[in-house]
Structures are given as C-alpha cells and as structure tokens.
Amino acid sequence: MTENSGFLTWASNITLALLLLGMLFAVIRLRLGPSLPDRVVALDLIAAIIIGFTATLAVAGNDAIFTNMGLELGLISFLSTVAFARYIERRIILEKKATRPIERSTKG
C-alpha cells in the first residue's frame, strides 16, 4: 500500500471537508428543526454521512480497517430511524387517548 499520490490526498481532503460541511448543515437542522420528524431526518443524514466519512478515511488513511464500521453502521442505523418514527406515531395516539387536541407538532 504505497503512500497516496498528491492528487488523491487532495481529493480525499476535499471530500472529507464536503462531508463534514453536510454534517454541519444537518446539525444546524437538528437545532432549528421545528418538528421532531425534521430532527430525525437530520439524524438519518448524519448517520449516512458517517458511513461516507469512514469510507473516505479508508482511502485517506490507506487502511481497509475503517470499512468495518461503515458496513455495520449501514445495517443498524436504520433501527434508530424506525424507533423514532414509531415514537412519533405512538405519541400522538397516547395524546389522543389523553384527549388533548392535536397541537401542530411545532415543538419537538
């Protein structure tokens, strides 16, 4: 595994920067996100970007070990979004049972 050529290191650095910029936007959405689903979408994107991040690190660091985490994360990050989705749905039903009017879910 030779050291990367100049072009490749330059490329991987740029990719990492772009990925992290995307992640930063997601964190901002996480903060701003009016409703809970918005925040879950942001979390979903962060998970995807982390997989990308590990992959780019594999290229930048020239080491295949990084890809394990990406592989595994791809599988299980799905569960957090499912759990959140179920929470969003169930919460409304609980509130209905507690006979409170459905306030537009402006607050997370």
Binding site: L30, R39, L43, A47, F53, L57, G61, M69, K107
Partner: peptide, 23 residues
C-alpha cells in the same frame, strides 16, 4: 428543549467519538 432532542444530539456526539476511536 425536548429530552429526546438532547439524547439524539448526545447520540451524534457518541458517533463522533466513535469516529475518533476509529481514527
């Protein structure tokens, strides 16, 4: 504001720490 948001943000920190471990 909401506990859930706090926990999910903590989750993001956890994943970043995971990245640091990886690096």
């Amino acid at each position: 504001q909401s506990r859930l948001v706090a926990i999910s943000a903590l989750g993001v920190i956890g994943s970043c720490v995971g990245l640091i471990y990886l690096m």
